[in-house]
Computed example of a mutant assay.
Amino acid sequence: MTRYLIKRLVGLVVVIFLVLTIAFIIVRLAPGDPAALMLGPDATTEDVAELRTRLGLDRPIYVQYLTFVANAAQGDLGDSLFFNAPVLEVLAARAEPTIFLALFSLIFALVIAAPIGIYAAYRHGSATDQGAISTAMLAASVPSFLTGLIFQRYLATELGWFPASGYGGPDASFLERMGHLILPSIVLGITNSALILRFTRASMLDILGEDYVRTARAKGMTERRVVLRHALKNAGIPIITVVGLTFALLVSGAVVTERVFNLPGLGNLVVNAVLRRDYPIIQGTLIVVAALYVLVNLLTDLLYLVVDKRVKL
């Protein structure tokens, strides 16, 4: 177990190192002078020269790279040009809406997809099964921004069941802020439930056809115990895998939904950083999201040990 963890942590370091290298190269490959691009067309020559010195762009490329990697290893991803603050502080200030949005969306997707996927597999070939598959395909096909706009208009504006947009005022309580995330979480949950539903159904279908499931039924066990205790437990690994990847995708891919509902999360921050040419923020977000992906994969693999003891072998 310890050896496995060490190998995975080494792999995590390697991936982060590669991401750091890619983030460094992206800025340097941008057409024109990066400092001039960041400041815009109205900047003077003196302003561009000052920013180049501040960012270290006037030094040799290998020195810039080594400095960038060394600073990142110490948790220093640079300073935001727009906020004039460390990148990690800016990202931390915007992380709460995105993390909770992803978490609530995942919970909502699981509440929808897992029971339907299990029941569809149990009733394989029935009208219920075909209806579940068709509904999942429809949910995956409709863009999240369209679903968000429809829900925003009817459930928020006309019926007034949810806040239409925003994240509450500066003095809003934690519960009030979480209330603003309910509707966007439903939107993202519906969109991402399709993948979880299909994986749950496919995994359950494989297990329900195994010999030990037929043996359990032959011994007189109830269908509920056969499906939930024997089949679902052994079908858990593929489901855990897709759930972990879905959470990582929700964190990094909630840009459109955050824009529709005007949430001050990481997605909105990155879009504004691109428009403002705030490259340190873009670099920092790329690195943080990549690290999140690797950590989620590691936690998913460790969770396999809890679900299925045979993984230790």
Rank of each mutant, 00 (worst) to 15 (best):
L138H: 10
V274D: 02
L208D: 01
L245I: 13
A49N: 14
G75K: 10
H180R: 02
I26R: 05
T53M: 12
T53D: 13
A120H: 04
V15I: 14
T98K: 08
R217Y: 08
N71C: 03
L37C: 06
I182T: 15
L195S: 06
E258A: 01
L110I: 14
T98S: 15
Y304S: 10
G131R: 07
T300H: 06
V288C: 01
L232V: 14
G189L: 08
V69T: 02
A132P: 04
Q283S: 10
V270T: 13
S134H: 08
L149E: 02
S141G: 14
R28D: 02
I112W: 13
A172E: 06
V63K: 06
E176N: 07
A140H: 11
R52E: 11
V227P: 02
A156Y: 04
A235F: 06
F151C: 14
V213D: 11
N268D: 13
V288A: 11
S80G: 07
V256C: 04
V288H: 05
F145C: 09
P170A: 11
D301K: 05
N297V: 04
I6P: 05
I150K: 02
G209P: 02
A92Q: 12
D33I: 08
F104Y: 05
F17P: 09
L77T: 00
V48W: 00
S252T: 14
E176K: 03
P280D: 06
F104I: 00
A202S: 15
L250P: 10
G253Q: 05
I25C: 13
I26F: 15
F100M: 12
E176D: 13
T200M: 09
A194C: 02
I196D: 07
L66T: 15
V111G: 04
S144K: 05
A73Q: 02
R259G: 10
S134P: 01
P34D: 05
L39V: 08
I239N: 08
A194L: 12
L57Q: 03
L110C: 15
Y122T: 11
I186N: 08
R217A: 13
F162L: 05
L81W: 00
A218T: 09
